[in-house]
Amino acid sequence: MLKKRIIPCLDIKDGRVVKGINFEGLRDAGNPVELASRYAQEGADELVFLDITATLEKRKTLASLVTEIAKEINIPFTVGGGINTPDDAEYLISRGADKVSVNSSAVKNPELINQIAKNCGSQAVVLAIDAKKVNGNWEVFINGGKTATGIKLTSWAKYGEQLGAGEILLTSMNNDGTKNGFAIDALNLVGNNVNIPVIASGGAGCLEHFTTVFSETNATAALAASIFHYNEISIPQLKTYLQQNNIPVR
């Protein structure tokens, strides 16, 4: 039976993890390769690295980091942030990334999805969508959530699938950082309109939130950052809990 995936997300700046560095007893949390290896050993099903480095020059740091991660990690990983051209994507994939995620750049230039899918395969393209509920309607936001696009969430998700995205990573801005649980309604909106895997993101705060998201939506994976980095929930603990609640996990 296909299992639900648990995906820790690591925000990377200038080659270092920027979340989790304050956690005591987790001294090496600043080193992405070490943290990633630990998550992989603990049973993470995939990893996402999101580069929040602002400048182009620093992108080289990301490429060498991807090389290092790929050497160490024996599970799939996605790299996102600043991928604006098919060449950017191909370069990171040639360094060993399994997938790339595109967000704002794909909204500005939807053909990007198609081009990466053609060159590297659909399985390598994760369409990351930041969505916010505005006046009762889910809308797509870009530029780190700063800019409203006026595009309906479902329209964009469907179009992304048509263009060749292999997966959708849906982050609810209303839920992100609240620790109040995932956005069940947004996930169902997208899940009922596409036939590719949807990764739930934003709002994970406790064990129950994961059971809820997997039993009330057809999301095939759930992503979280701070609860794992700050050791509020460990991956083995989460896996055991999900198993006890009849959610199939590895």
Binding site: K3, I75, G166, T220
Partner: peptide, 28 residues
């Protein structure tokens, strides 16, 4: 959902490739 994406188990495993691999194991 298509693609089949994620970790799944196998059954009726035979031959040298699967030596020492139990059918409880998952593959990506």
């Amino acid at each position: 959902i298509v693609p089949h994406m994620g970790w799944n188990t196998l059954y009726n495993c035979k031959g040298e490739l699967f030596t020492g691999i139990s059918e409880e194991e998952h593959f990506y």
